[in-house]
Design a protein around this nucleic acid. Structure first.
Lengths: 236, 236
DNA sequence: TTATACAACTTGTATAGACAACAAAAAACT
DNA sequence: AGTTTTTTGTTGTCTATACAAGTTGTATAA
């Protein structure tokens, strides 16, 4: 067992938050309660809690407790929460259409080059997804996942439609942080059509690399966002 | 009026980093050295160091030490990163032109409304600045600062041209975190002219609220970015 | 010369306890 | 009933210590 205790606590709490056991806006157990539950000291529990603050899952208040983060006005997608959590957590009606995949594909797209260390020829699991909020298309996303130790990933459907949750529950892979590049570009024809905007309209382009609890295992995403109705927000 | 020890350590190190005493890419003193220097325990020093990591000033590596980050513009939460592999983040190649201000002005701009809690009529200190990298205009920024306890701010020039550094050194106000909304919009005439792009070109719009070490004291910025040559990157 | 082993660094993880500061509920006092 | 004070429970800060684990340089052996 080489996973640090505070990471285990962190993952356990995250699981209970995303699964709804700890309700949005509700209080987490106190630090001392968590100490006895996980057989750890306060410093260890606090490390887990601070990580969850950093990831945007909870907020803390002196003298009161840890509150499960409440809904947000705009989509908090610069933080590393998955789409499903963010949209569901913000009381908006979100949908995800899988346009292509999951399927095996080589990552021939050169825009990812600056983010990738290894120049491998291996196959990736590939997704093309369109995400809608209140029936409005807002994000068009290409996702690449290394095809490493993910048995039956392509065959089985995603848990509750969420990629992050599927990785966490079925494969014990916890997505923990992310780096990204952000640009404003003019939408090409395909993207504009899917996002139901005019060609050459300004869209946000996010190039992401997700870091996980598995050493050397990264996820990659290229996302085009229509920000006419919904802004992207970040918290730090 | 009691500032926690780890905050003092954090501010002290930040000062030494931004002033160049600790060089970019160089190593900070080890945790134990800092312990003796500040008369604190490792846990306290580590809390300060972890805050600096969160703010993007340093990175840490197990078994090696703490390295001063190369680019620490804009709090390090969003730093300028070169698209063409050549990263030009050092201030030597960056310039800032003050187009207007500092001057007193009411914040009539309605786009800030969603970020502001209080609906006050007070005057703000106002800036209009244009930022260049390698003589290329990349950011056009409007900044609003509450005119509270900032004597002679308008009269005196900025320390080394840096707003954050002026606030830290002259007024002991440490900018610590930020929230923002990000959009892609078409550049209006004024913005396009300043950024030397065509009108209606896609530009990144950042709406920022900076949190400081002074309770209730926030800074506000509206920034238009030309991302043709330089992307905005973020780390979490 | 080239490995290998070791030692001396570094940061990472974790325990155990103490007191301070803040928030909310309970008790005591008008 | 309404107000003030006290108590209790919470998070924030900090000390002191210990061992694990990664990095680097050096001494040793092949």
């Amino acid at each position: 067992m080489k996973i640090p205790l505070y990471r285990q606590i962190q993952a356990s709490l995250k699981e209970k938050i995303t699964s709804g056991i700890y309700e949005e806006g509700g209080l987490l157990p106190s630090e001392n309660d968590l100490c006895t539950e996980f057989n750890a000291t306060r410093m260890t529990v606090r490390q887990a809690l601070n990580e969850l603050v950093r990831e945007g899952y909870i907020t803390r208040q002196h003298g009161k407790g840890s509150t499960v983060s409440a809904s947000r006005k705009s989509l908090g997608l610069l933080s590393l929460k998955g789409w499903t959590e963010v949209v569901v957590a913000s009381d908006r009606h979100g949908k995800t259409l899988v346009l292509e995949g999951p399927m095996l594909k080589k990552m021939q797209n050169p825009i990812f080059r600056p983010l990738i260390d290894t120049e491998s020829d291996e196959d990736f699991i590939f997704f093309k997804r369109l995400r809608l909020v209140e029936d409005l298309p807002v994000m068009y996303e290409h996702t690449y996942i290394p095809n490493d130790n993910l048995p039956n990933f392509i065959e089985e459907p995603l848990l509750e439609g969420s990629l992050f949750r599927t990785l966490l529950i079925r494969y014990q892979i916890d997505v923990q942080s992310m780096t990204q590049e952000v640009r404003a570009i003019a939408a090409d024809k395909e993207t504009a059509n899917l996002l139901k905007i005019k060609t050459k309209s300004p869209v946000l382009h996010l190039l992401r690399k997700y870091k996980t609890s598995v050493e050397g295992f990264f996820l990659y995403s290229s996302i085009y966002c229509n920000t006419e109705k919904f802004a992207i927000s970040s918290f730090n």
